[in-house]
Design a protein around this nucleic acid. Structure first.
Lengths: 344, 344
DNA sequence: CAATCACATCGAAGCGCTTCGACGAAGCGC
DNA sequence: GCGCTTCGTCGAAGCGCTTCGATGTGATTG
């Protein structure tokens, strides 16, 4: 490959001038710059990332750590990745996804210590996450997507589960619903400290209590069949249920089927509101779901911006961000039917 | 951070000896090596990847290019990634996922030209893929997951669609089925040159014809509702259908529902065989699907091994690999019912 | 018109590592 | 006891870039 030296010779300037022309670090006259650019084009010059990284002590690469093997990659994550990659690029960074099991915190740290990445975006953060401690101890710049139990002083972006569940319940009560169930993620996810499972249920319970309503929540595996069972449980606990908030896409598929199998029409008899939903999921059921979809793209952009701020050490520490999911009207929620509760 | 020079001083050896101790390129006495290792541990030494890369002209990184924003990341891809990452690591490489839209072939090339990666794993290769031409022209080592229309001379690993569809049809005919439909991916995927859509249908048709059976295939969007419509079409075209081979997970969910909605029991009246399936999908329907699941893990391992061979230039060009999907008995296929065709 | 000042450019010193040739000290056969 | 090889180690030369201080050149000023 052509080196900068080759370009310099060809453009009849010194090596350093080529560097300045490329980086804009110092002024270069228009004529010189034009010659340099011509030389680069003729030689098909491509700067060597390693040499650049060694000299500048920056790789201009951000590592998005994702535990590929452990949890599914949902549509939300895709929106997130696409937006994060675009944002990184517009700031002159590469965004790469680096697969690491959650327990390999040291390896993640060494990526940055060894100079392969300038900073780390941590996905699937759980309430108590070793990686956070390791990275903090090593002074590695990082931003969490999600947050630990006590994220004070850390850089993060996350879904605002309190507000999302509050708005979900508000949407349903505005339609006259009072007996509203909650279909959560799995018990396993909760036991592993998966934060959404915990935070969303807490938010839902609070939202119900604030209105003097009785919360009714079930955990449920991420399978359609489990969703059917979960609906059965909910209806057994309260046969007068008129609405369900779900935060479990696979289970939601089963849930709507089970409701219909029991002769309960959606939304005429029971409303279904799917929260923290991936794009495209709404269209997958019949009727199309009313959803509150996760702000994946916004989180991707904001997460990268925060990480870059941390890497470049410009802003002291940008404030954390909490974004609610956004309501998107489908056809699975409607005004509560007139049935007095429990008489159906 | 501590440098190799620091380690050398502390261990009272020269810099080069440290390097040899670390790489094993030249023999180092046990005593010296022990001192060096102690020094490294005390200093928390972590070699600088950029310096190493600059000096050795190798990044020891492989880039898995994936068009994140365009197609979903299925369970198969996850198996694939996990296995590829593990294999890469066991050979001393990092595997990173690099999100690039399919049309940014130049950027992909520049990753390697610029030294950020030593080679490229190309996912979601379609029949006519610009990236392949660009990479080949630049002499960049790469291996395809999938293959172009005419992949001669290129390094690739792929699903053996001919054998998979042949075995799918064989499985069903062995059960006495003769009227077997095929539920394919979407028309859009075919128009974009998505290879599986084309190859699987061709394989299915050939397998049917070999047996003197009439093929009946439909394209179908990747949504459950579309799967329901597709089944309706198939049954309209041949009301005597007793089995369906599906290669479209989302549509398969809808397909089983539609069959049951029409009073056709699975598998008693109609068998469903889902091919090129992700792990875990089988359990998502009722009854659990009989599947032929995609050999994601094997492809990941083999793909990385081939790429490393190309990068290191050891083997001339490892032979391409084609692997069939593996049959996994579920409860959605059974012996054809006794109905004379069309009399149901 | 000498002193001053931007501006554009250059040369050289690293960044932290790999790798090559060289070299001293043993160990060997004869 | 001599040359010879082998083993373990060292010093130095880069890899291709960024960046700092220095320098030359006109234009600007009192």
């Amino acid at each position: 490959m052509a080196t900068m030296q080759d370009v310099a010779r060809r453009a009849q300037v010194s090596l350093s001038t080529v560097s300045y022309a490329l980086s804009g670090t110092r002024p270069v006259s228009a004529a010189t710059k034009a010659r340099i650019e011509a030389a680069m084009a003729e030689l098909g010059f491509q700067p060597n990332a390693m040499a650049r990284g060694l000299a500048s002590k920056r790789s201009r690469t951000l590592a998005l750590i994702f535990p590929a093997m452990e949890l599914g990659i949902s549509g939300t994550v895709q929106e997130f990745v696409a937006s994060a990659a675009t944002t990184a690029r517009s700031h002159g960074y590469h965004l790469v996804l680096w697969p690491f099991p959650r327990d390999e915190a040291d390896e993640v740290r060494d990526l940055v210590v060894g100079g392969m990445a300038d900073g780390v975006l941590l996905m699937e953060v759980c309430l108590d996450d070793v990686r956070v401690d390791t990275l903090r101890a090593a002074g590695v710049p990082f931003t969490m997507i999600g947050r630990t139990e006590d994220p004070d002083g850390l850089s993060y972006v996350d879904i605002d589960f309190d507000r999302t569940t509050e708005e979900a319940v508000a949407h349903l009560t505005a339609l006259g619903h009072e007996r509203i169930g909650f279909l959560n993620h799995s018990e396993r996810s909760r036991d592993e400290g998966y934060a959404p499972t915990v935070r969303a249920e807490a938010g839902y319970r609070a939202a119900m209590r604030r209105r003097g309503l009785e919360p009714l929540a079930v955990l449920c595996d991420e399978r359609p069949a489990a969703g059917r069972d979960a609906v059965a449980h909910l209806l057994q606990a309260d046969p007068g249920l008129t609405a369900v908030v779900t935060m479990n896409e696979m289970a939601t598929f089963g849930a709507t089927v089970e409701l219909q199998a029991r002769g309960l029409r959606v939304p005429d008899d029971v409303s279904v509101l799917s929260i923290v939903t991936s794009p495209g999921v709404a269209a997958m059921t019949n009727p199309p779901l009313t959803t509150m979809h996760a702000p994946g793209a916004a989180l991707g952009r904001l997460g990268v911006e925060r990480l870059i701020a941390a890497v470049e050490g410009t802003s002291p520490t940008a404030d954390p961000v909490l974004l609610p999911c956004l309501l998107e009207e489908g056809e699975s929620t409607a005004r509560a039917s007139g049935h007095p509760p429990g008489t159906r």
